[in-house]
Every structure is written in structure tokens, then in C-alpha cells.
């Protein structure tokens, strides 16, 4: 590989790693959910993009570059979608952004007081289905969405269910890790153990 390409690859990988760590540091240092999302978006777009660019320069024009392109395009699109869904759900759940108050200190502020036009939109429930079924049962808690309170009236229902989904995602990740370990051990995912081992030894 030409020295120019090597240097470009080096620079992209180092910059990408730098922005990736910056985003993760922001995830821990920022005061509230919305600023944390802002920090993570740095590593999810610029960090991932630069790291992938570094790898793409390294591999040159090949099938691997196409695969890298697929990975980065899917990551960019789903990242934006996930951020939007997360922010929307958090606002509906009554999450208060931490802003500089009148006394110059950081205080959790209800965003309806800042943007009154948000009020009616936040007063609507996320689920149209819930309105219909709630009206049928004559349950006032189900018919009107109150920020900070989920549909069932139980404050933690949405939160605990979201935590369960996080656990499910972690379990999927764990399965992936086990598959990866198998791949390391025997060189392939599908072949018998003995055959894989000899192949792995031979390749090193």
C-alpha cells in the first residue's frame, strides 16, 4: 500500500477513535438525557464514519469496502430513527431537560413552560389505540395522557418495560458474543469441532 494511503488510514482511524471516546465521555458527563443523546450522536455519526473510512482506505476497492458501506449506512439511518423515538418517548414520559434557570443555575425545566405549543401535542397519547379502548372502558386515566404518568397510571410501567427491552437487547448481544467465541475457537460457525480446529491451527 502506498504511504499516502497508509497515512490517510492512520489519520482517519485515530480521529475516529478520538471522536468515539469523546462521545462516550459526554455520555457520562452530560447533565440530562437530551444532552447525553447529543453527545452520543457524535460517536454514532462522526466516530463510526471516520473509523469506517479508515478501514475502507486500508482495504481499497473491494467487496469489503462495500460491506463497510452497508454497515455505516444502516448505522447512520437507524441511529437517527432510534434517537427520534427515544427523545419522543422521553418527552411523553415527562422527562425534564436540564436548562439554565433564571438564577443562572442548572435546573430541570418543564418544556411545556418554554414551548407552550408543545402542550397539546404532549397531552395526546402516543397510542391512538389506547384512546379508543380507554374511552370504551370509561377509564379517565387511559383517555388522557398526563406527562410524567403512563397510561395505566403506574409511573414505572413504561420505564420498567423499557428496561426489560434493554435486557433483551443485552441477551441478544450475549448470544452474538458466544457465537463469536465459537468462531474464534473453531474458525467457522457451522463445521464440526475437530475439522475446524485443524483448520484454525493451519491458518496461523
Amino acid at each position: 500500500m502506498e504511504p499516502v494511503f497508509t497515512m490517510a488510514s492512520w489519520a482517519a482511524l485515530c480521529l475516529g477513535g478520538f471522536f468515539y471516546v469523546i462521545g462516550a465521555v459526554g455520555l457520562n458527563r452530560m447533565p440530562d438525557l437530551f444532552t447525553r443523546m447529543h453527545a452520543v450522536s457524535v460517536s454514532d455519526t462522526l466516530g463510526v464514519g471516520l473509523l469506517t473510512l479508515g478501514m475502507a482506505i486500508h482495504s481499497g476497492a473491494s467487496l469489503i469496502t462495500v460491506k463497510l458501506l452497508i454497515v455505516v449506512l444502516v448505522l447512520w439511518t437507524t441511529g437517527a430513527v432510534a434517537s427520534h423515538a427515544l427523545a419522543r418517548a422521553a418527552l411523553h414520559d415527562g422527562e425534564k431537560p436540564v436548562l439554565v434557570g433564571a438564577d443562572g443555575r442548572l435546573t430541570p425545566t418543564d418544556c411545556v413552560t418554554l414551548f407552550p405549543e408543545l402542550g397539546p401535542r404532549l397531552a395526546q397519547p402516543l397510542s391512538s389505540e389506547a384512546v379508543e379502548t380507554g374511552a370504551d372502558q370509561g377509564d379517565p386515566a387511559a383517555a388522557t395522557w398526563i406527562p410524567g404518568r403512563s397510561r395505566s397510571g403506574d409511573t414505572n410501567a413504561t420505564a420498567s418495560a423499557a428496561a426489560e427491552m434493554g435486557m433483551a437487547a443485552m441477551r441478544i448481544n450475549m448470544l452474538g458474543a458466544l457465537g463469536l467465541m465459537k468462531m474464534f475457537r473453531i474458525g467457522t460457525m457451522s463445521s464440526a469441532r475437530s475439522r475446524g480446529r485443524t483448520r484454525d491451527r493451519g491458518s496461523r
Binding site: 471516546v21 422527562e95 434493554g166
Partner: peptide, 30 residues
């Protein structure tokens, strides 16, 4: 660098005060 970021995201996933913080951290871990 990515490993350091992963460790920091795990810290946030364990410490996150709300479920949304945890969800954000899990997304970042992925």
C-alpha cells in the same frame, strides 16, 4: 479507543437514572 468508549457506556447503562438513559447506553454498546 472503542473499548474505552464501551466501558464508559457500560458505566452509564448501570448508573443511568432513567430507563431512557439505559436504553441510550445499550444502543451505544451495540
Amino acid at each position: 479507543a472503542v473499548l474505552a468508549a464501551l466501558a464508559l457506556a457500560v458505566v452509564r447503562a448501570l448508573a443511568g437514572p432513567t430507563a431512557f438513559d439505559r436504553l441510550l447506553a445499550v444502543n451505544s454498546i451495540g
